[in-house]
Write a protein that binds this DNA or RNA. Structure first.
Lengths: 329, 329
DNA sequence: TCTAATTGCAAAACCGGTTTTGCAAAAGAA
DNA sequence: TTCTTTTGCAAAACCGGTTTTGCAATTAGA
């Protein structure tokens, strides 16, 4: 049922129907009786306007694009939930996609969302999206980047201080009495990963220790990852503590440790919390990013920019907490 | 840049531009040279058509609505990822929302997605959506319900056999030597929950045991839930095994057990797997729904219905595996 | 050489709305 | 009573595309 059909049925013009439906009867000088007659019929047949046509006419889609690396992930999933809730409070819907860290998927998705006239974008970018993001910015599309920056591109950004948090984490392991502290990370060139790595190296150097690093390919399947970690542990028996750049690397390592011929306990600390960390024995400490605060900051920044296209960008670094769970040995 | 502006710039009609851009130069009998001239200019300025206008004209949005209970959840998150991947392979985008199990949110979301002309809906419904879903069906919108059925409404459905799986699970606990088997669940009227409960009662009766049930409100915050479970355990010291209708109830219980004044080990078995179950000591068995298979079936069903509006619905019950992790005591 | 068919594109209609403009009839002012 | 406002709504233009139709110019056919 279209507005034209309604108009025809009631023998009025569609402009009249449109005005009445949108509560602009007054301003369109439509008489009360006619307005009532129209509303009655509209309610009777349960008419709902075609949102596409409406968006085309008004230029408003009430939709925000949300692009994360992996919606099934224990970091992005919950953050997506919070973002969605805050956006809903502002009357926006979410068009989402996962990039799986792949450049071409990411680019296609951004393009598709821009084409679909989203009113803003929330993006956790991959490597190689610089040019596209600059293009998006040039077109004045409201945009917030989160979790990782795009080096050399100035945008709104919300994330945590990976470098500082990483330093605190490694310091804590030293302070807990460990001395042979290895780091397990992925060989990604993403800034947040590089920052975490830099923090590790810095403290290792400060304590005059030797860096012991396992860098795994992001594309490695889980079983291969576990195998690689297992070998790393077996070839580096001197290790007494491990620092992980992500929580899932820690989970994989726990699995790898199970597979070791003889059990061994490590001091462990991971970037990003995980439900299981407090349920293990010994518990596992972590750096916890305040997901709700991050989501709130992202949405607030985006809405602000939509309402009033800004001249300058905001760069918000939300501190993470070091959650200390295990006692020093 | 619109297609009209391009046409004006090149002194041609916009119909010509449209035909060329969409590779219909042949069928529109546009000369090669003109087609090339148009394509060159289009590429030069990097024109991308407005997807809204295109959708309005063609009636195709290439968008599917995905409505889950909670995208941050360890069941819905990963399943959403898989659904998204399969849909991408078919050229569809995803508009998603979480209902948080709330009726009015769910209804608004479905309405919004229908208004936005999604080409199909994938829905994990809440209680009270019957009428709306029937309305959606009457409008011939392709639809797949998953995880839980809507009693009395015939639709496409993909889910697991909650009743049978539940029976197998409780049987397994008995067979492992436990005799005082409690069940912890939420007091939801959702069919999948009722089926799980029914399976428990059936086996308990068959073994001539006494049902021992804790039904928690879905709206309970996590700390309160943990507290309630703790009290339940303290008031029912005879319990030696626990069966959980969802994995997060098991996780909450693990937390509650930590808080008990003196440690106790239970036989435990949960509906839905969780990363941590195989990392604990003792490990926790579970019923594992095959997420990828479920996602694949959902998408296949939906695509089939889009391509060829069916007369009849398919009801697919995908068996779950009982993953036995702990050894019998 | 005259008519018929084909070529090449412009123009128009349409998708389903919103918003501005215009105009006849009624009401008010002089 | 005549001119000016105001009222109440229809008509038209627009959003940015797609697709069908129509028509002049060229080519082919006889």
């Amino acid at each position: 049922m279209s507005i034209s059909e309604i108009a025809k049925h009631l023998n009025v013009s569609k402009s009249t129907v449109s005005l009445v439906i949108n509560g602009k009867a007054e301003q369109g000088r439509i008489s009360q009786e006619l307005a009532k007659r129209i509303m009655d019929y509209v309610n009777e047949i349960g008419y709902k306007p075609n949102a596409l046509a409406k968006s085309l006419a008004t230029g408003k889609t009430h939709t925000i694009g949300l692009i994360v690396e992996n919606i099934g992930d224990s970091f992005f999933g919950p953050i997506a939930l919070h973002i969605e809730e805050y956006l809903r409070q502002h009357g926006y819907y979410v068009l989402y996609s996962s990039t799986l860290g792949e450049e071409d998927i990411a680019r296609n998705i951004v393009q598709a969302m821009v084409d679909k006239q989203v009113e803003g974008l929330i993006l956790s970018p991959t490597i190689g999206q610089e040019a596209q993001v600059m293009q998006v910015l040039k077109n004045k599309m409201p945009l917030v980047i989160f979790d990782r920056r795009i080096p050399g591109v100035e945008t709104n950004y919300v994330g945590t201080d990976n470098y500082t948090a990483s330093k605190k984490a490694v310091e804590h392991l030293f302070d807990s009495g460990f001395s042979q502290i290895g780091m397990i990370t992925i060989d990604s060139q993403q800034p947040q990963m590089l920052d975490r790595l830099r923090g590790y190296h810095e403290i290792i150097a400060k304590r005059k220790a030797k860096p012991q690093l396992l860098q795994l390919s992001y594309t490695l399947e889980r079983p291969d990852r576990i195998q690689a970690i297992k070998e790393f542990l077996q070839n580096n028996k001197q290790l007494d503590a491990l620092y992980f750049s992500t929580n899932y690397l820690c989970v994989s390592t726990l699995k790898a440790i199970q597979l070791l011929p003889k059990a061994k306990t490590y001091g462990m600390l991971a970037f990003d919390d995980h439900e299981l960390f407090e349920l293990l024995n010994p518990k596992i400490s972590c750096i916890r990013q305040p997901l709700e605060d991050i989501a709130k900051a992202i949405v607030a920044t985006l809405i602000a920019q939509i309402k009033e296209p800004k001249k300058s960008f905001t760069d918000q670094v939300i501190p993470s907490d070091l959650i200390i769970r295990q006692s020093s040995r």
